[in-house]
Structure formats: structure tokens, C-alpha cells
Design a protein around this nucleic acid. Sequence first.
DNA 1: GCTGAAACACTGATTAC
DNA 2: GTAATCAGTGTTTCAGC
Lengths: 143, 143
Amino acid sequence: MDILDRRIIDQLRHNARAAYGDIGSVVGLSASAVKRRVDRLVASGVIRGFTVTVDPSVEGLLTEAYVEIFCRGTVAPEELRRLLESVADVVDAGTVSGSADAVVHMRSSNIGALEDSLEEIRKATNVDHTRTSIVMSRLIYRE
Amino acid sequence: MDILDRRIIDQLRHNARAAYGDIGSVVGLSASAVKRRVDRLVASGVIRGFTVTVDPSVEGLLTEAYVEIFCRGTVAPEELRRLLESVADVVDAGTVSGSADAVVHMRSSNIGALEDSLEEIRKATNVDHTRTSIVMSRLIYRE
DNA sequence: GCTGAAACACTGATTAC
DNA sequence: GTAATCAGTGTTTCAGC
């Protein structure tokens, strides 16, 4: 993982379907050298995968929320992970410092689906209560 | 935008570098038909782009935070968008219901960089104060 | 170890249907 | 929408740094 790998990743992030030769001409390598490095980055897990970014509104997933989870007593992160993994609408989540135990970013097709997912989280043992901020308008989208 | 388009997007989301023929054999179309649909989805803005997902820890972006922004008076969403767009570490953000005006998801290389970005937000006119929850351990990562 | 160059198979892009 | 064509790319192999 050197500066060339980083520059290749920068190029792929910009366009994951770019030709290896084109990437090579930018970073200063031949096409085959670029391919070898990309293969290695994928094999080593640095590159998790190649995906498309889709307009969320077109996808029908326009109801988003940030949810703070407050637990009873002490809850192991692994326990929270197991709980949130089973909820499909969870986009990302992490345990946090501060008054809440975890923050969860959710994206659902509508308010009803969001409520259902929230209920799944709330009914879990150890979850005391949640504090939900419904997203009204998306400002930045760089995921 | 029919069911076939959705299935093509599902395939691309799983592997954005998949050959059109492979996608076609899954969704039941020829390679050229798949290409035409993908081109149309890109041209119409449904597909925003093709990117790679990179392990954040390898990338050196392991300091994350969820930040609530509280503004003075009423602030137009567009104004907030302009402010947050200029901060590089912002991953996603949206105006929300509840006590806060907006929630921002940030990802920095270290605590110092995170603090710098926070300062950029705080010094903006109309921003009254912020409430930051530093992510301690990432639980879910589906972006 | 790493690289670049060449040969080959395959895919993407285009055209006609 | 499919089928066929051709240029271009991905992939592999090779020799060299």
C-alpha cells in the first residue's frame, strides 16, 4: 500500500469502470501493472468491492433518519452489532461517546417502514429508549 | 425504470465491473440490451456513478462522528448545504426534525482533523452550537 | 520483489435488423 | 428487443529491471 495504490484508488473512486490503461496513464504505470495492483488491493480486502451510487429518491428510499440508542446498563458493542445487523434499513451505525450509546443511520422506503424498523430496535432487551431525528432534506451525499 | 432496471442495478451494486453479458444472463437480456439500459440509467441520473468501497481503516479514515447542528433563527437548507459542501470530511448530512437543525456524519483521518472540520462548521454565521458524538466502534457499514 | 511489452481471449460499442 | 461485427480492453505470459 504505497502512494501509487492510493492514487489508483482515487481514480477508481472517481470512476470504478475506468480502463486500466487510462488509470495507468494518470498514475504513471502500464495497464497490466495497474491491474495487478487492483487485484492485490481486492484480494487483501483494501478494496471491498465495486458498486454503483444510485439516486436514493429514484430507488424509493427517501425516508432517512438518525437514531440515537440509549441502553439500560452496559451493553457490549458486539451485542448491539448483532441487533442492528438484523434490521435491513440500517445504513450505518456505531457506538458513540456522549449521552447516547449508539447512533444509527437508517434509510427506508417510507415512514411506515422506518417505524417498523425502529420498533425492532426498541423491543430489543437492554434498549431503554431511542431518540429519532427524521431527515427532511438531504444536504450532502458522498457515501 | 421498470423491474428489469432495478434488477440490473442490483447486479451492478453487487459488482459494478460485471460484464454486461453476465448481468444479462441473470436478468434475462442480451448484453447489448443491458448496456443500453445502463447507459440510459447513467444519462438520466438514476445511476450517479461507479465507485469502489474502501476499508476506512486502511484509508486512514477511522475517526468518525455524528454532529448535530443548532442554528440561530431560521436557516435555509441551501445555506447549510453550501456550508457543509466546503468541509471535506463530511460524508453525509441532512436537515432534520427535532431539536437540532441538521445532522452531519463526518469521517476524518484523526481527532485533530475532525476538530478542524468542526471548527469550520462552528465559525459559520448562523451556527449557534454543535453537539458531537464521536464514534468509538463501527457496528454496521453498508454504505 | 517489482515492472513493461506482447499475444490472445473476451468484452464493450456500434450497426443493422 | 436481438444478432453480428469490429475496435478496444482485460488477462495472461514472458522477459527484464
